[in-house]
Nucleic acid binder design. Structure first.
Length: 817
RNA sequence: GCCCUCGUGGUGAAAUUGGUAGACACAAAGGACUUAAAAUCCUUGCCCUUUUGGGAGUGCCAGUUCGAGUCUGGCCGAGGGCACCA
């Protein structure tokens, strides 16, 4: 028996699909569309197993939808701007453009070898002028709509990458890429007014039924809506400060007020500029620890001013004003009113500085004598010691009632606060989309006229400079328009801007005049299925949702708010980790299993420590190269294996044995195929073969259901089941009727997972063509007349009967008795 | 600390959503073929019983139901997210 030659067969079909434009998509309003999009990759040089998994999942869905008769848009592109290119180019004396383009070429080749059903005619790259010139237009449009603004403020400065980071890019006080401790620096930056849409972004989540709950919860928390009250406190003291505004969610505890605390960056800090003690305090604040957690549990420290704050509902009560390390400048007003009895932070602070702790809420099961002693009480209860607020139920009623009273007395007003802050998009980097802005001699910014777009990135650049190479490139930076001299903005846009609208570009990848064509977008958008890693749950997905709204804003003939109708977040690909006795990481190729031990391949002696299975990463060397695997086992085997074992949303464990068994399975399927072909040739008369017909029908139903529900691991099990059934069936039935028809249906069901193999088999039966349809199944055949009926008495199985399904109840009872 | 998700064999996991728990695969043990190995194929997988059978069993404890892996409440454990957000 000839072996299945995956190499020549996979090449044959990949060439066929390319030559015949099988996956080239055109707008066709007579057909229902399906837009399947996977998160596009960063062109780092080679694809990794994570890509293989992500794109295989998307490909199964795309191929299935195509067979179901949908007009499928399944594009691919490159998230091609970003720092690695700049660093690699500098280290290897290349241009970032060349490094990126050669990586793209290589990765495109690798993706093609996976046999993905991608319309490569729509390929886009965010670093090409064709792409970023439209992005610059969007930037200017957003500027016109006042959704972009410039402001000077403190930024997260990464001293290693020498750039600004968004809040989301700071993890545990360190840069997400470099790992360097982030510093505070004051800079002028461009901002997208994402916070304008806080409420809308929150409301939109409600309608995203086909998004994982986890992601919605993360976005909800990130937006961080809180309902409360703005209170204006009168201030007394020897400084020209008359009042300080605070935001609070618990105005009902105002009678427990015992101090007021402001951030060290609060505007009143200007009066303390020459105060040495204050400057020292400020220093101490920045030293309280590096990780967020350390700060959270760290000491509460304060600096007492001579100012006193007056309790607005008890004007004879005055409390001290402090600067405190735990008050954040960029939330609320950078000032809080302290009620130690009912807020743990305030409690800790009050204990430290011996401030008054006055109980104003009692739990339901305690009486009026209840007193907060060892920790703050922030639970529900009843208001006490609060004059006209006494007896209100806290917090729900009491908060609303208190706000009403404060509003009536003009002491405060209802306010809703969001944690979500505006998106700083300026990056002090070369390899990004230039911001289309110029400044006159006074430093006033002007938009670059749209007719002069794109602002091209200069090709020849010296990367061996500190900071942004663009800022020292004079011949690019300085321009003259109508005799007037300007300097260009040298910051480039955060690469997350590029990925915030690429899904629109795929609809009209070749449109010259604008980023997209309305007719295309009306037809293709929204993305019906978006697939990618959960690590983008907040950043990329929130920014994309913002961008769609920003384009919609003040645009009456455009009406799509949510770019991604459904979202699927796939799990990571994991592998065991290995360390030698010097604690060096070893790659899977460097080890060998001997009996119960794992040893070093090079000397076969040294015992290797096997660590837990973790997400594949270069630093831990637990990576398996897809190119190597595809070369050895073929694309179909890899696709099959990456889908088997674990549900797509969970992490999958890479195993060599599993991979080999998938490969063997393809070989076994091929042997089976050849036997079936012989049987088919010997087939004489057309006659319905009932048992096989029933099996096929059931299997089609199962696989259809499993594709729809993303149970791709179960599809693989279904494929094994089918093989086990057929191999046995062929052995025990010498004269098989009607086999060809059923077998073809089965091949089509397998085709989303192993497309090269099934195409070859169908071709072998002279049945491969572009008009193939997903087989339907007969629901009535599923409800077969004979069913297994389990007789249970008190939940225990007592008998197993094979009975007719439409039997009368009384007859059934008779049989049982 | 707050929020979310999940607990099924040695392992990854199935279970048409309340109806025969463990499909399918990996690993293991035993066997067949072979001079031998590899490959391939078959069998086994908790407890009692020689077999036929029977029993327990989906983290733990209760509850609802003729019937619970699935629903409800409480507890225990694991993973993830957020974290001085007033």
């Amino acid at each position: 028996m000839e072996r299945y030659n995956f190499k020549s067969i996979e090449e044959k079909w990949q060439k066929y699909w390319e030559d015949k434009d099988t996956f080239v998509t055109k707008l066709d309003k007579s057909k229902k569309k399906f837009y399947c999009l996977e998160m596009f990759p960063y062109p780092s040089g080679k694809i990794h197993m994570g890509h293989v998994r992500n794109y295989t999942i998307g490909d199964v869905l795309s191929r299935y939808k195509k067979l179901k008769g949908f007009n499928v848009l399944h594009p691919m592109g490159w998230d091609a701007f970003g720092m690695p290119a700049e660093n690699a180019a500098r280290d290897n004396n290349l241009r970032p453009k060349d490094w990126t383009n050669s990586n793209i070429k290589n990765m495109k080749n690798q993706l093609k070898k996976l046999g993905l059903s991608i319309d490569w005619n729509r390929e886009i790259s965010t670093c090409s002028e064709d792409y970023y010139k439209h992005q610059q237009t969007f930037f200017l449009e957003l500027l016109e709509k006042k959704l972009v603004y410039r402001k000077e403020n403190y930024v997260n400065w990464d001293p290693v990458d020498e750039t600004v980071l968004a809040n989301e890019q700071v993890i545990d006080g360190k840069g997400w890429r470099s790992g360097a401790v982030v510093e505070r620096k004051k800079l002028s930056q461009w901002f997208f007014n994402i916070s304008k849409f806080s409420q809308d972004l929150l409301d939109g989540l409600e309608k995203l039924d086909a998004w994982p709950n986890k992601v919605k919860v993360m976005q909800k928390n990130w937006i961080g809506k809180s309902f409360g009250c703005e209170i204006d406190f009168k201030i007394e003291g020897d400084l020209p400060v008359n009042n300080i505004k605070c935001f609070t969610t618990r105005p009902d505890t105002l009678f427990g007020f015992s101090f007021l605390a402001v951030s060290v960056d609060h505007e009143i800090s200007k009066y303390f500029k020459n105060d040495i003690a204050f400057e020292k305090f400020k220093d101490d604040c920045s030293k309280t620890g590096t990780t967020e957690e350390a700060i959270a549990v760290g000491d509460k420290i304060g600096f007492r001013t001579n100012l006193m704050a007056i309790n607005p509902i008890k004007p004879d009560e005055k409390v001290p004003v402090y600067f405190a390390n735990f008050v954040l400048m960029d939330y609320g007003f950078g000032a809080v009113f302290g009620c130690p009895a009912h807020d743990q932070r305030d409690f800790d602070f009050a204990k430290k500085y011996n401030l008054n702790i006055k109980t104003v809420v009692r739990p339901f099961d305690k009486d009026k004598s209840f007193k907060v002693e060892n920790e703050a009480y922030s639970g529900p209860g009843v208001i006490i010691n609060s004059e006209f607020l006494d007896g209100l139920e806290a917090p729900n009623n009491s908060v609303i009632e208190t706000i009403k009273i404060l509003e009536k007395k003009k002491l405060g007003k209802k306010q809703i606060n969001y944690r979500l802050k505006d998106w700083g998009v300026s990056r002090q980097r070369y390899w990004g989309c230039p911001i289309p802005i110029m400044y006159d001699e006074k430093g006033t910014p002007y938009p670059i006229p749209k007719s002069m777009l794109p602002v091209k990135l200069p090709d020849n650049i010296n990367l061996n400079v500190n900071g942004n190479p663009l800022s020292v490139k004079k011949d690019w930076k300085e321009i003259t328009i109508e005799g007037k001299k300007y300097v260009r903005e040298t910051d480039t846009l955060d690469t997350f801007v590029c990925s915030s609208w690429y899904y629109l570009r795929f609809c009209s990848p070749n449109k010259k005049e604008y980023g997209f064509d309305k007719e295309d977008v009306d037809y293709w958008m929204p993305v019906d299925q978006y697939i990618g890693g959960v690590e983008h749950a907040i950043l990329h997905l929130l920014y994309s949702r913002f961008f769609m709204r920003a384009i919609n804003h003040e645009n009456s003939d455009f009406n799509i708010k949510e770019p991604f109708e459904s979202l699927f977040t796939q799990g990571m690909v994991c592998h065991e980790t290995y360390k030698d006795n010097k604690n060096n990481w070893l790659s899977p190729e460097e080890i060998e299993k001997v009996g119960d031990n794992v040893v070093k391949k090079s000397n076969k002696k040294e015992i290797i420590k096997v660590g837990p299975s973790e997400s594949m990463s270069k630093s831990k060397k637990n990576v398996v190269d897809p190119e190597f695997i595809m070369k050895n086992y073929g694309a179909d085997s890899v696709r099959l294996f990456i889908l088997s074992d674990s549900p797509p949303e969970k992490d999958v464990q890479w195993s060599e044995q599993g991979m080999v068994s998938s490969y063997k399975f393809i070989q076994k399927l091929w042997t089976l195929h050849k036997e079936i072909v012989i049987k088919i040739k010997n087939e004489k008369e057309e006659k319905i073969e009932h048992e096989l017909r029933k099996f096929t029908n059931e299997m089609i139903a199962k696989i259809t259901n499993n594709v729809e529900k993303f149970n791709y691991n179960v599809i693989v099990a279904n494929m094994y089941e089918t093989y086990n059934y057929l191999i046995n069936y062929i052995k025990t039935n010498s004269d098989i009727k009607n086999l060809e028809q059923d077998y073809k249906k089965i091949l089509i069901c397998f085709s989303p997972v192993i497309p090269h193999f099934t195409s070859e088999c169908l071709d072998d039966l002279n049945s491969y063509n572009s008009q193939l349809n997903w087989p339907s199944y007969d629901q009535t055949l599923l409800n077969e007349k004979e069913v297994n009926f389990v007789v249970q008495i008190n939940g225990k199985k007592r008998a197993l009967l094979s009975i007719k399904k439409d039997i009368e109840e009384k007859d059934l009872l008779l049989i049982i008795k």
